[in-house]
């Protein structure tokens, strides 16, 4: 809320915003709204999936990588990063456990 010495346009904005926001927030933060958004997202995925498959087939015919291929690569890269990270943690733990470590 703007202080009393704010310009008139700001006070007018705050008047409207103060009335609209609580109602809007009550709607958008309600579980029903979130479930609706989630359902819409699932429906979009369902519709776009066959289109994506067709596009992927076309790209593969042309010898080009698809979005799915990139995702697969990212997943594999993530697994390598995880292994490296676990190795590094074990190494550092072993370093710290050494009797001469400070």
């Amino acid at each position: 809320m703007a202080p009393a010495n704010s310009p008139a346009w700001r006070r007018a904005f705050d008047g409207v915003e103060g009335r609209v926001t609580p109602r809007l927030a009550a709607t958008t933060s309600s579980p029903d709204f979130q479930i609706l958004v989630q359902s819409l997202r699932q429906a979009t995925r369902l519709v776009s999936s066959p289109v994506g498959n067709l596009a992927a087939w076309g790209l593969h015919v042309a010898g080009l990588p698809t979005h799915g291929d990139v995702r697969q690569l990212r997943r594999q890269l993530g697994e390598v990063q995880r292994d490296m990270s676990a190795l590094r943690r074990s190494l550092e733990a072993a370093e710290n456990d050494r009797p001469d470590s400070t």
Partner: peptide, 13 residues
Amino acid sequence: RLLQPTADLVQYV
């Protein structure tokens, strides 16, 4: 953002 749907607008104003 769901909790403060007009936060962006208020912030710009």
